[in-house]
Simulated assay, not measured.
Amino acid sequence: MFEYTIIDKSLENKIILITGAGAGIGKEAAITYAKLGATVILLGKTVSKLEAVYDEIIALGLAEPAIIPLDLKGATKQNYIDMSATIASQFGRLDGALLNASILGELTPFTQIHEQIFNDVMKVNVNAQYLLAQALIPTLQLAPNASLIFTSSGVGNQGRAYWGAYSISKFATEGMMQVIADEYENSTLRTNAINPGATNTGMRTSAYPAEDKDKLATATDIMPLYVYLMSDDSIAVNGKTIKAQ
């Protein structure tokens, strides 16, 4: 695992947006960030899941989260612009954004990738990330130091047979991250990507249904990197894709 000692209150008073916050890694990151003192903004498409995470954070006596129900497959550019403006209005800034939400599509030979599935994967994993980042950057720049984190994959820098649409989308994600990181290199915004590795999540199960889940890392196991990149300890880190495992 990525070696980093998580320090209590290391994210105190930070305002952090997490996409895909209703389950898996996004949910774990939201709860972890809240425990470390952050006010988290939970974005996801399923309201009931977001409400469950909200309730869990409140039950722990932590700062009250905000909820933004939004389906990345159907959201428009204006939705993201309005969302960012609302965050700036209500909180005054955004200290961090973890762009965690993505979809797998299907594992299939390249010549059999269905056009609609390919388009859906690109819309959620690439187009939505581009529009989100574009809308959020002005609000991130209102913070003294801000961290924008994309989510990549082991197939995001080395193509793998049958992972077509998802792999291509993660190559695009890493490229997008590098472009933003380079453009804002001399600013208060740093941009990086995380490769979570094989983790026991719903997406992993759909890709490898017969896999022994007990041999996989849990979302909790990989949190040190997620905390590190969101904390001020990583202020000098920019334009990197880092493995959580």
Rank of each mutant, 00 (worst) to 15 (best):
V40N: 05
Y228D: 02
D95I: 13
V237D: 09
L98P: 04
K243S: 03
N145M: 10
A38G: 03
V237A: 08
L60S: 13
A244Y: 02
Y162V: 07
I81E: 02
T241C: 05
A88T: 10
K35C: 15
F110E: 09
T173H: 02
N100V: 09
I67G: 06
Y184F: 05
G61K: 01
A23E: 15
D221P: 06
K73Y: 14
G26M: 02
V40T: 04
I81Y: 02
G197D: 04
P69Y: 10
A97C: 07
L140D: 04
L225Q: 08
E106S: 08
P144G: 08
L98G: 04
G156F: 01
T39R: 15
D232M: 10
S187W: 03
I31K: 05
D8F: 12
E51V: 10
K123T: 02
M230G: 00
R160Y: 13
D120F: 08
E64N: 09
V53Y: 10
Y166L: 02
M83P: 01
T151E: 07
A88R: 11
N100S: 11
S89D: 13
E115N: 15
Y228G: 04
K49M: 11
S231M: 01
L50R: 07
I16C: 05
A29W: 07
K14M: 03
L131C: 15
A217H: 14
I31M: 11
A146V: 08
L36E: 10
I25G: 14
G22W: 12
G37L: 06
F110A: 12
G24L: 07
I168P: 00
E211N: 05
G24K: 10
A146S: 15
A63C: 09
V227R: 03
L36Y: 14
T39P: 14
V121L: 03
G105L: 09
G96S: 07
S153Q: 01
G96W: 04
I87N: 03
D212L: 01
M1A: 11
T39G: 15
